[in-house]
Nucleic acid binder design. Structure first.
Lengths: 191, 191
DNA sequence: CCGAGTGATGTCAGTAACTGTCATCAAACG
DNA sequence: CGTTTGATGACAGTTACTGACATCACTCGG
């Protein structure tokens, strides 16, 4: 049988689940890495072999988003403007998050309660923006427009994601993304 | 005589100078708080009474920028558009940094060499953006436009500051700010 | 002039994040 | 069947940060 080796399978995933559970139950800063490791049936040292630090365990999924964004921009039709391509990419990212709605909301609640995690989130978002800009440049978009469209796109996504997490209206994330983009196009007219 | 009390004067300033010196000489992560305190003639414990953590010592000046931005937006002429008001504020911030040009450049070199410091910088910039947005709202600007103008303004400032720090052209920061804003207005036309 | 604060600092012990190094041992490989 | 490999454990060490208490020049009411 697979996964019946010397160790229980998916150590990395067990660590990630144990960490989120504990962060939800007791808060990020009242959770020690030793406790996470214990719940996952591993040692502290092993945690740090899988995740660079105690925060990173919440952000490992961001590389998957990077790939989704890059692919979507690359595959957008030739005729798409930079912002059109970004819009397609953001809907792809929205679909990924919607697959694990409850997980995404729990995770965001943890982040919202802790400043260190917000710092890490900002740098990850900046990195996503960089990925978008790079993908746009490879479509031949000039440097300034690529950077601007990417930054604005991420800003729109943050706004839409926040509305989705807040649950004041029960809509799909992708719908909030489309609405926020429409709002941007309206506002941008008189900036 | 003033400053001849039980302790040498300006402990906080001495700590900040010692920290920047050491971060420049040996890098952020090869400098311990004990070394900073020693150079300042104080103890490690006292460092943490003045600065919340080892990073914060590089960002204490950001509250001064907050005040400059808020005041400039508040005092901008009634007729100014949101982006006009932001432009005035950014030039005020530029003037502050230009007063301590060498300090600003050294500090930025240290930040550019360390990911943890970049995280802290991003959250400080987000906070400045929040300050701008708040000041705009108090002028009666609607929520969405205030947020957008503030975020775009900070993005423009980052871009201008980078060009100033890079020194490929020897211009004043305030000039780079004006040029970058002009660039934005041009690009924004066809986003 | 004196005695009770006050505030900035020192001292010291403790927690926990992270790192380096070496040992272990099942599984894969030849 | 011997060797190598890779994930893990064990353990010691550094350092960021915190809490509790001590110190002592200065201040201010009496």
């Amino acid at each position: 049988m697979p996964g019946m080796g010397r160790w229980q399978p998916d150590a990395r995933g067990r660590l990630a689940r144990a960490a989120l559970e504990l962060y939800v139950e007791r808060g990020f800063d009242r959770t020690s890495v030793a406790e996470i490791a214990e719940r996952a049936g591993l040692t502290e040292r092993t945690f740090f072999r899988h995740y660079a630090d105690k925060r990173e365990v919440l952000f490992a999924g961001s590389s998957a988003l990077q790939e989704v964004l890059a692919r979507a921009v690359a595959e957008a039709p030739e005729s798409a403007t930079p912002l059109d391509a970004v819009a397609v990419a953001l809907e792809g990212a929205a679909a990924v998050l919607e697959e694990r709605q409850e997980h995404a909301r729990q995770r965001q609640a943890v982040i919202d309660a802790n400043a260190e995690l917000q710092e890490r989130e900002l740098i990850k978002l900046a990195s996503l923006s960089g990925t978008l800009a790079e993908a746009l440049r490879e479509r031949g978009v000039d440097e300034a427009s690529a950077g601007l469209a990417a930054e604005v796109g991420i800003a729109v996504f943050k706004f839409a994601f926040r509305r989705w997490v807040d649950r004041t209206e029960e809509k799909e994330l992708s719908r909030f993304v489309r609405e926020s983009l429409a709002g941007l196009r309206a506002v941008a007219a008189d900036v």
